[in-house]
Amino acid sequence: MGTAHQGFIVASYAITALVIAALILRALIDQRLQARALARLEARGVTRRSQARPAGRPAPEAG
């Protein structure tokens, strides 16, 4: 394996690993961020439209 081309092989595998790691990391971070934002909204009592109709009605009077 000790050829002059070894650097090219190592470089291609390293770059591939880097790009894939970036993809995975991006997916994880993005997922975490959105889940947290959703949890925060739900904790504040904001619900989805399908559930919001009955619960959301009294809001104007309450305010």
């Binding site: 997916a27 993005d30 997922q31 959105q34 889940a35 934002a37 959703l38 909204l41 739900e42 504040r44 904001v46 619900t47 989805r48 439209r49 919001a52 959301g56």
Partner: peptide, 17 residues
């Protein structure tokens, strides 16, 4: 895709709020 669905929900809820 899962994250994107979450993002859409967050967007809808933020607009509702």
């Amino acid at each position: 895709m899962r994250t994107e669905i979450l993002r859409r929900r967050v967007r809808t809820l933020s607009i509702l709020e």
